[in-house]
Amino acid sequence: MTFTKTSQKFGQWADSRANTVYGLGFSSENHLKKFAEKFAEFKEAARIAKEKSHEKAELASTPSQESATGDMQSPFTPESVNGTDEERATPDISHNALPFPHGSAINKHWEAELAALKGNNAKLTAALLESTANVKQWKQQLAAYREEAERLHKRVTELEYTCSQTNVIKTHKTELNQTIEELESALKTKEEEIDGLKAEVENARQLQAQRDSLAQKLQETETRSRDLVGQLADLEQRLESNQLGQEAFLRNLRTLLELLDGKIFELTELRDNLAKLVEGS
């Protein structure tokens, strides 16, 4: 099992049996670093547990490794236990791999696994210390140890199998890096578009300010226009009144001229008559 950091905030590993690559994203580079350290720590603990399990199997299967009193060495503690050959039977370690948990909860899962193993190891140590007085109790604790050892061996088997898929991980890493580059390029393009939109928004704001100014000037012009229209109407009304007065004056003047013409005609006739009278006398 190999955890690979593919970027500052992302890591991945592969499950070749399921033909699947799992990945985890982190909120910061420090969280990714801590996860990678824990991952390596659990992997090393699994390797050590597997070695101890193999040592126990070798001790149980070789008579020369037993003590003079018939004790058997525990893989987790140096204490010995008295018992018969049947009581020192080698635990059956299965090689069937369990499905590897994945997702955002993998760290908690492994911590729980390690905590469970530590708790079972403490129980097993206490049972081995008391095994000289109670062999039956030691058998019960040994059965619990066998179950935990089998589970741990299954984890180790899957980790070893996954480690052989380095090429698959590298291939997926290359593809992910290429995808990241494409996304960064697209992000850069989007940022340029956003800058262009910001410039357009600024221009729109300036145009809006100009429009508001022109609207205010237009409103003022309309107000002045209404005032001028009112003044023009008043002038037209006054002009119309003046025209009516002028027309009346002209009518009166024409009437006066007509009367004056009549009087002039009468005076002319009177003059002519007077002239005739003067000539006749």
Rank of each mutant, 00 (worst) to 15 (best):
F26G: 00
F26P: 01
S27A: 11
S27V: 01
S28K: 01
E29A: 13
E29W: 05
N30T: 02
H31V: 05
H31A: 08
H31W: 04
A36R: 02
A36V: 04
E37F: 13
E37N: 14
E37T: 02
K38C: 10
E41Y: 13
F42K: 08
K43A: 13
K43W: 03
E44C: 09
A45V: 09
A46T: 10
R47W: 01
I48C: 05
I48S: 03
I48E: 06
K50N: 05
K52S: 06
S53T: 10
H54L: 15
H54P: 02
E55L: 11
K56A: 14
K56H: 15
K56E: 09
E58Y: 11
L59M: 13
S61C: 04
S61I: 01
T62G: 07
P63E: 03
S64D: 08
S67A: 09
S67M: 00
T69R: 11
T69I: 05
T69L: 07
G70Q: 05
G70H: 03
D71K: 05
D71S: 08
M72G: 12
Q73A: 14
Q73N: 05
S74H: 09
S74P: 02
P75D: 10
P75F: 04
F76C: 01
F76V: 02
T77Y: 06
P78N: 09
P78K: 08
P78G: 04
E79W: 09
S80M: 07
N82W: 06
G83M: 03
T84L: 08
D85Y: 06
E86M: 01
E86G: 12
T90M: 15
P91Q: 03
D92M: 13
S94E: 10
H95L: 10
H95N: 14
N96Y: 05
N96A: 13
N96G: 04
A97R: 15
A97F: 12
A97H: 10
F100L: 03
F100H: 09
P101W: 10
P101A: 04
G103R: 11
S104D: 12
N107Q: 15
N107G: 15
W110P: 02
W110K: 09
W110T: 00
A112G: 11
E113S: 12
E113I: 03
L114T: 04
A115F: 13
A116V: 02
G119W: 05
N120M: 11
N121M: 07
N121F: 07
K123M: 08
K123R: 12
K123L: 05
K123S: 07
A126K: 08
L129S: 10
L129V: 03
L129R: 12
E130S: 09
E130N: 15
S131D: 06
A133L: 07
N134F: 00
K136P: 00
K136H: 10
K139G: 02
K139N: 02
Q140N: 07
Q140M: 07
Q140R: 06
Q141H: 08
Q141I: 04
L142N: 08
A143S: 11
A143Q: 03
A143D: 07
Y145V: 00
E147F: 06
E148M: 07
A149T: 00
E150S: 13
R151P: 01
R151Y: 12
L152Q: 12
L152T: 05
H153D: 04
R155W: 14
R155I: 11
V156H: 08
V156G: 04
L159I: 11
E160L: 10
E160D: 12
T162K: 14
S164I: 10
S164R: 15
Q165M: 13
T166E: 15
V168C: 09
I169Y: 03
K170R: 13
K170G: 04
